[in-house]
């Protein structure tokens, strides 16, 4: 049996040459030289040299404390791909006639699996054949591949945070390496997506400490439905148009990513977690190690600022076009 601490056991198992070789090969795939292979990451002494590692697992002391604090409590079970619907009908479904989580993302596994089912026994995708054992009692460290299903979610969030594909890949790699290294700390049955996002948030925060960016103050309208108010002020017959028509017609759709990436980081983080990845307020609070009230205020401020930016971006080229069309 391979040492459960594969990440640190480079000199332990003499007879596993194939595994060893794969282990060495994997981290080089993306050709990023400074990425240390998992075998090289052993104890804290070495880890300390790395650019962004402040301790084991959840490097942030506060996050560690909170993780410890919430362990014994029997938490409400949540689906890995989102959260359970409220007892009422989903309000978004009511408005759009479509499921809220319908976007074709790869974290799309919330169907069917009962919430109490430990994530370790699911079908984990293409690599699962190799990792599965009969029955359901696989320990978490036997099914790391289940974490792969959150890759798209992690990557797109990393992209919104870092704004650069190379940096996003780097951050995601770091996240998975840490998750791999500390996989024994993951509690089966808890939300693995949230766990991965916690690791990524910490990794990203540590990076931020290295080269701190000064955020400019944001332009924040005074209410939650700024765009709607603007449109109404312009006298648009909103009652005759579907929201989608209005949004698409105004070119608000294509600028969303840009507007989001321009938000100051604390707000961007929360908007990504809640609006894009559909974490609950509570989950977002735990991932970021902040209070639920802070999540809510950042979320509301972030959304207002997002609408203002969206509106500005969508208006600017439009005004230019009109100006050019009528010389």
């Amino acid at each position: 049996m391979p040492a459960p601490n594969a990440a640190g056991g480079g000199d332990g198992g003499g007879g596993e040459t194939e595994t060893e070789a794969r282990r060495r090969a994997a981290p080089r795939l993306l050709g990023r030289g400074r990425r240390a292979p998992p075998t090289a990451v052993r104890g804290r002494a070495r880890v300390g040299r790395r650019r962004s590692d402040a301790g084991p697992g959840l490097p942030d002391r506060r996050a560690r404390r909170e993780a410890r604090a919430r362990r014994p409590r029997p938490r409400r079970q949540v689906h890995p791909g989102g959260r359970p619907l409220p007892p009422e009908r989903n309000p978004i479904e009511r408005a759009t006639g479509a499921g809220a989580g319908g976007g074709g993302d790869a974290a799309a596994g919330p169907m069917g699996r009962p919430p109490h089912h430990p994530p370790v026994s699911r079908d984990a995708g293409p690599t699962s054949g190799r990792n599965r054992m009969g029955g359901g009692g696989i320990p978490m460290d036997g099914d790391f591949s289940a974490f792969e299903q959150h890759l798209d979610a992690l990557y797109r969030s990393a992209l919104r945070l870092t704004r650069k594909p190379e940096d996003a890949q780097d951050l995601v790699q770091e996240t998975y390496l840490r998750a791999f290294r500390y996989r024994n700390r993951f509690k089966p049955g808890t939300n693995e997506k949230a766990w991965l996002f916690t690791i990524m948030a910490n990794a990203f925060r540590n990076r931020g400490r290295q080269h701190r960016v000064i955020e400019e103050p944001i332009d924040e309208p005074a209410n939650d439905h700024f765009i709607y108010d603007q449109l109404r002020r312009e006298g648009l017959p909103l009652h005759l148009m579907s929201p989608e028509e209005v949004i698409v017609d105004r070119g608000l759709g294509v600028e969303v990513r840009r507007a989001l990436e321009d938000l100051p980081l604390p707000m961007r983080m929360v908007v990504i977690l809640v609006d894009v990845e559909e974490f609950s307020y509570k989950e977002a609070a735990q991932i970021l190690g902040i209070k639920i009230g802070t999540v809510m205020s950042r979320l509301h401020r972030g959304r207002r600022a997002l609408q203002k930016r969206l509106w500005d971006y969508a208006e600017r080229p439009r005004a230019r076009r009109v100006a050019m069309a009528t010389p």
């Binding site: 794969r22 282990r23 994997a26 795939l29 998992p38 790391f144 792969e148 998975y176 791999f180």
Partner: peptide, 10 residues
């Protein structure tokens, strides 16, 4: 890359 990482501990 992630798959290979996961496969290391099959």
């Amino acid at each position: 890359w992630v798959r290979k990482l996961a496969a290391q501990e099959a």
